[in-house]
Amino acid sequence: MKKVPILVIRNTLIICIQNDLTDTAILELQNDILDKTYKTRVNGVIIDISSLDMIDVFLGKVISDTTKMVRLLGAQAILVGMKPNIAITLIELGFEMPNVKTAIDVDNGLKILNKYEKYNATKVLEVTELSGED
């Protein structure tokens, strides 16, 4: 079964959900995200759906639940990269995900997280570059 990679970058998890995951794989991914959020003690989780060409009610509900669960753990989750065709279809289906934070892409998602956490990624970037960790 396909395994979705979860990247940990500067206090943030980044997950890029792919097409064609089975329902079981999607639930496993939810579990992995929560596990990794807890273990790595990140501040933010970015769920990138820009490569998806469909969200049905099941996937939409898992994504929306995951962002709520992440919040309960003490981090912020942002859904990024939804395509217009998916937004149209979801609203027509009656599935609006009102409590899910969204951003246009990963970059904007990071900006929102930074504002939220009063945490400046560029400064961390400079520091790590100076210390030669990159």
Partner: peptide, 17 residues
């Protein structure tokens, strides 16, 4: 069109499930 493709794929996913 892309939006109709998405509508149809989504409907197929719901009903197949």
């Amino acid at each position: 069109g892309l939006v109709d493709q998405t509508r149809i794929v989504t409907a197929v996913s719901e009903l197949s499930r």
